[in-house]
Design a protein around this nucleic acid. Structure first.
Ligand SMILES: [Mn+2]
Ligand SMILES: [Mn+2]
Ligand SMILES: [Mn+2]
Ligand SMILES: [Mn+2]
Lengths: 162, 162
DNA sequence: TACAATTCTTAGCCAAGGCTAACTTTTTAG
DNA sequence: CTAAAAAGTTAGCCTTGGCTAAGAATTGTA
């Protein structure tokens, strides 16, 4: 197969009913989708920790690392290391042997994550997903929805409720 | 705050309108959601590579690693290492300096990923997300939907079309 | 108050998935 | 056929996010 057969970065006509690149898709556009996806993949763990710290503070008055560990299903050592990173990122304040607090920035991220999380659950419920599955799947999907998609979800849920 | 105030692994009454743990959620259940999410996070890169290899084969007759790299937006070295892993996992066959082929297992995974990918795009379109955003967001969400959710999506799209 | 249980910290390990730089092989053009 | 360009390989580096094991600090209880 020679280079001229390939038409690298051109629009390629969709060959058959395969999953191949289609009219609106170019090599560069696809690469940028993958890059955004990798970016979101990087931030999702941080978002989960911060949201969970907020949940614990709001439910129990404080976020102890042992509770963070239990709810995430990871070890205390893992939590400890992550808390250090969050501190470095100015998302939390933490002193040795004391529980964890959110900075203003951290609280903001937590609220945003929580809101996204709830919109995704609501959308899943609205299209017929059962509650248990909705909560399970939302834990991953929540981090991968753009603001545009979240807006569409919120809109849809609201309209569908009327 | 003492231990008895906390009621660790019991159902906790939702304190306020916060995002806190709610009736159907326990510490263990939440931990298992996070574990599933971490699992999906691990497999998603493999799925993307395999699906993309299938796309290239179906569109262009072969999957060259330079094309995989271009579409993913990563370097050739990165692709090379991942191809070695996929080979180890029996998802692809590959010889040095030659292009990549899917094993039966790899083809199966590719078809499944592709199908999921398309269902997610269709769902997003169906609830009002524009095409560009739908393709962008689906690239991440596709890996985080359970079979149950995908079934609900397919169902919803089908009904909504009538 | 003492001691036991719990929690927290630290060190060291590992795999995944990126990268750059240098080199080899294959492919293309002249 | 040969030289240049393109593609592929390899080595070495880095960060992230897990883990275990060992020990230190805190907290609960007798
Ligand atoms: Mn969340
Ligand atoms: Mn999550
Ligand atoms: Mn896909
Ligand atoms: Mn993807």
């Amino acid at each position: 197969m020679t280079e001229s057969d390939r038409a690298e970065d051109e629009l390629t006509p969709p060959p058959e009913g395969t999953g191949a690149i289609s009219a609106h898709m170019t090599v560069d556009r696809q690469a940028s989708h993958f890059k955004r996806a990798r970016q979101a993949r990087e931030t999702e763990i941080v978002e989960d920790y911060v949201e969970l710290v907020a949940d614990l503070i709001d439910e129990q008055g404080e976020a102890r690392s042992v509770d963070v560990a239990k709810r995430l299903g990871v070890t205390g050592a893992t939590v400890n290391k992550m808390i250090a990173r969050l501190k470095e990122m100015d998302l939390v304040n933490a002193e040795p042997y004391r529980s964890v607090f959110l900075t203003d920035e951290g609280r903001k991220m937590a609220e945003a994550s929580r809101a996204r999380h709830h919109i995704v659950v609501a959308l899943l419920r609205a299209v017929g997903v059962d509650e248990a599955t909705a909560w399970a799947d939302a834990e991953g999907m929540e981090h991968r929805c753009s603001p545009e998609t979240l807006a569409a979800f919120a809109d849809f849920v609201k309209k569908q409720k009327l």
